[in-house]
């Protein structure tokens, strides 16, 4: 690919801007782990010395473990269901011509754009009219709506990226639709499935606004943190907990993005 010489010329100012941009993007979040090691109840400079006591305190706290378990359960169920539905929907969107498809896709993608508070209160109203008590199930339903568009968006490029003639070849060689799916389609889209599972789990694990309206007596981890924000003396342990959540999310998402994209680029390179 030939590129104009001016493009190859280094633009020093732009380069500095990009580095500063990345620093500004990450630094605010880094203050959370920084102060979680600070030996003081007050979150302020100067730092008072290194301590692990806030982490130790978390370890012994029953409600933290309960909230973590709630979040993991909801996240696991939501990620599996939304990814399964995402696979099926993404396949339908890419393989079949159907009237009104773009309207349907827009409908599915709506939660990406519309403020979560609208869905939160709408579901709350529905549940209360139906007399369904708020619980982790209602939170899960809220998260499912929120995660489905992400699952579909993650999986769509996978299905678009692979050649339908592979499936046709398998059918011609005598496999039925079911085995063609498991032996040809599924392995081809597998990286997308892993990426979608990880991403939707993280989204559900970190989601706040739906849980805020739909949680019953069992809080998820973000709801627990929200509750603790009212007590200034709890600030350091909230920071410790937040630092752990942030690290877990960063690792999960980085792996998901890597898996999700690496394979895609290879697909494009080998036509």
């Amino acid at each position: 690919m030939s590129q104009g010489t001016y493009i190859k010329r280094h633009n020093r100012a732009l380069q500095i801007y990009a580095v500063v941009f990345l620093i500004v993007l990450y630094v605010p979040v880094l203050f959370i782990p920084l102060f979680s090691f600070n030996d003081s109840v007050y979150v302020r400079f100067p730092l008072q010395g290194f301590t692990l006591q806030w982490y130790g305190e978390l370890w012994t706290r029953e409600p933290v473990w309960n909230a973590l378990w709630n979040s993991v359960r909801v996240g696991a169920v939501v990620s599996v269901i939304s990814t399964m539905l995402g696979v099926v929907a993404a396949r339908a969107i890419t393989r079949y011509r159907m009237p009104g498809k773009s309207a349907l896709v827009t409908f599915i993608m709506m939660p990406l754009v519309i403020p979560g508070i609208i869905f939160g209160v709408a579901l709350l109203v529905l549940m209360s009219r139906l007399g369904v008590p708020l619980s982790l199930y209602t939170v899960g339903l809220g998260h499912l709506i929120f995660c489905l568009p992400f699952a579909v968006a993650t999986l769509l490029p996978r299905f678009e990226g692979f050649d339908p003639s592979m499936e046709e070849a398998s059918m011609d060689l005598g496999e039925n639709g079911w085995w063609t799916f498991w032996r040809v389609t599924f392995p081809m889209v597998f990286p997308g499935v892993v990426a979608s599972l990880l991403l939707t789990f993280t989204i559900s694990f970190d989601e706040f606004i739906m849980a805020f309206f739909l949680t019953g007596t069992d809080p998820t981890l973000p709801m627990y943190i929200w509750g603790q924000l009212r007590f200034p003396q709890e600030f350091p342990s909230v920071l410790a907990l937040s630092a752990l959540i942030l690290i877990a999310s960063f690792v999960l998402v980085f792996v998901a993005q890597w898996i999700g994209r690496v394979g895609l680029d290879q697909n494009k390179e080998t036509p």
Binding site: V29, D206, F208, L246, S249, V253, F254
Partner: peptide, 12 residues
């Protein structure tokens, strides 16, 4: 990457 992590914690 930061966009995918907890919105609540980034605001916090």
């Amino acid at each position: 990457l930061p966009f995918w992590t907890s919105y609540l914690l980034r605001v916090f």
